[in-house]
Simulated scan of single mutants.
Amino acid sequence: MIKFSAFPDAYETEQFVAHLLTSQGVIYPKCIATGKYENWNYQIAVKVEGQQIANETKEQKEYLLPMLLPELMKMNLVSVDHTSGYGWLDGTGNGMSSSWHEFILDTFKEE
């Protein structure tokens, strides 16, 4: 799968998150490469097969939930000890706000 963006450093954060999660056993699309082509930044990642659970029927969601919960629990246990901050992440995995309170207030200011 390839994605393009006009924003500088558009995929640094996603690459950080992909490495963080996959290195700790969480299923996440592996980032193969990032780069720049003319005025566009791009990311090439492994395409994961499947469909969005939100598009499934109620019965299918109920069937899938027991299989999904262990993956969500793994995500909850991912170590982020080497990062700091809260809210939106920069390319190094650090939150851009100094507290949750600051992040929430800034979010409401944007709206």
Rank of each mutant, 00 (worst) to 15 (best):
I27R: 13
A6F: 09
Y11T: 03
W88E: 15
T92W: 06
L21K: 02
Y28L: 05
E62I: 03
E62D: 05
T83Y: 01
G93S: 08
V17D: 02
P8R: 12
T57M: 03
L69E: 06
L89M: 10
S5R: 08
E111T: 13
P70I: 02
Y42S: 02
I44D: 03
W100S: 08
E102K: 11
E12V: 13
N76G: 12
G25D: 04
Q52E: 05
E56Y: 07
Q24A: 09
P66Q: 03
N41M: 09
H101G: 11
K47T: 12
A10F: 09
I32V: 14
M96Q: 15
L20S: 04
S84K: 13
E12L: 15
F108E: 02
Y28H: 11
L69W: 10
I44P: 00
G95W: 01
K74C: 05
K74M: 05
I44E: 04
Q15F: 04
F16K: 02
F103T: 11
K47N: 09
Q24V: 08
Q43A: 12
A18Q: 00
L20K: 14
P8E: 11
G87Y: 04
N55G: 08
E102N: 11
S23R: 13
Y37F: 15
K61I: 11
K74L: 10
H19S: 14
V80M: 10
L105P: 00
L64P: 00
G35N: 05
E71V: 03
